[in-house]
Amino acid sequence: MPLLRRIRLAALPIALSVVLAACGAGGGAASDAPKSPCDTSDDFPSRPIELIVPWAAGGGTDSVARFIGTQLGQRLGVQVNVVNRTGGGGVVGHSAIATARPDGTTIGLATVEITMMHWQGLTDLTYEQLTPIGLVNSDPAGVTVRTEAQWTDVQQLLAEAKAQPGAMTASGTGRGGIWDLARAGMLLEAGLPADAIRWVPSEGAAPALQELVAGGINVSTASLVENHTMIESGRAKALAVMAEERLPNLPDVPTLREQGIDFTMAAWRGIAGPEGLPDDIVGELSCHLDGIVHSPEYEEFMGTAGFGIVWKNAQDFGAYLAAQDAEKGEIMRAAGLAA
């Protein structure tokens, strides 16, 4: 056999092992090949991973979890199984994440409700019983009204709420839900009572939007992502977004801050594990999540669904959780929504 061909054949196993390592091949397979930069734990993962979703299958949180689970499984080289654990307004699923064995084989997609449920008296569980791994999404609240409504900006809407307190109604979720807090926080920041615009509980953003266009309520404070279709079709109009900056897909909608109200509010999702998850496992998972969130595939998936992409690593996500919890408690107490 020619010498050059023998050299090429001998190099094939080495090249293959390097490729597998770079892709984050897991499953506990022993290898002397160079590791992926994300491989910080020698024996993780050794078996399939369970990714808990505290909400029902088919929803936005579920779809984000399934996409991330597939991508994470490919990078780790093990199966990542999404399991929906619903009930109690998110209590059941978040509790399942918190009480899992801290070995990395059970993680979950935590949502903004982890910073709200204990203030409502639904549970003693708080974010401190979770280990943050990475924030992967955030969708800000909005102020949406009927196309025929006379208001052209938020200040006009609030002026009417001040002149006729309690005459107008808003909806977007159940009582004390994230979009209810968006309404209350906006009003309080504007110097109005939290009930200047009354809240009408609903089963979610979609039925609330139907009520809006039918004239049953005056305002929806759900995310503009959820109201986007009606806004695009001209059946509703957005007066503001409760974000730091305008949304790329709705560049003509100003922020509340641009209209003199220094307030933001958003629903978010992030990967977390139980308290006590080892640092090396947290580091490996966070590293892989970083790669997923900054991939063209994730950008395309989230863009198609209309979800916002926001990334925070484990440390920054932990600080964010603490700030979010404090903010939610302050608003809920001021609005009479805390237990």
Rank of each mutant, 00 (worst) to 15 (best):
K162E: 15
I7R: 12
R257H: 09
T304P: 00
A323V: 06
D43N: 15
E160Y: 15
T40P: 00
V241K: 05
L192M: 07
S233R: 13
E113G: 00
L51R: 03
H94D: 08
A190D: 12
L12S: 02
N81W: 00
N227Q: 11
L239A: 04
L187P: 10
C23I: 07
E226R: 12
G308Q: 03
V225N: 03
P2V: 00
V92R: 13
R246V: 14
L20P: 00
R198V: 15
G87I: 10
L12Q: 10
L9A: 13
P248D: 05
W199H: 15
E299M: 08
A322W: 04
S46F: 04
F307E: 08
E284V: 02
A149I: 06
F67H: 12
Q129N: 14
G60R: 00
A65W: 01
I271K: 01
T169Q: 11
D139P: 11
E244Y: 07
H228Y: 12
A10V: 14
A184I: 00
S223C: 03
G204C: 11
E226M: 14
D279T: 15
L192V: 12
R75N: 11
F317E: 03
I133M: 09
A323L: 06
I97K: 08
D43L: 12
A243C: 05
L9E: 11
N249Q: 11
T40H: 11
L192H: 06
A214C: 00
P165F: 13
R75T: 03
L109H: 01
I231H: 05
A334G: 09
M332A: 13
E211W: 10
A167D: 07
I261N: 03
A206Y: 11
I197D: 02
G89F: 08
G121V: 09
A25M: 14
A314P: 00
R198E: 13
V293Q: 03
S202K: 10
G283T: 06
W199F: 09
I7Q: 08
S41Y: 06
H94G: 10
E275V: 01
A338H: 08
A236P: 04
T169W: 06
A322Y: 02
Q74M: 13
R175E: 14
G306R: 07
N81L: 11
R101G: 04
M168C: 09
M186Q: 03
D62Q: 01
G303T: 04
A334L: 10
A319V: 01
L16V: 15
P201S: 06
G283N: 10
A170M: 10
L321F: 07
D180C: 09
T115N: 15
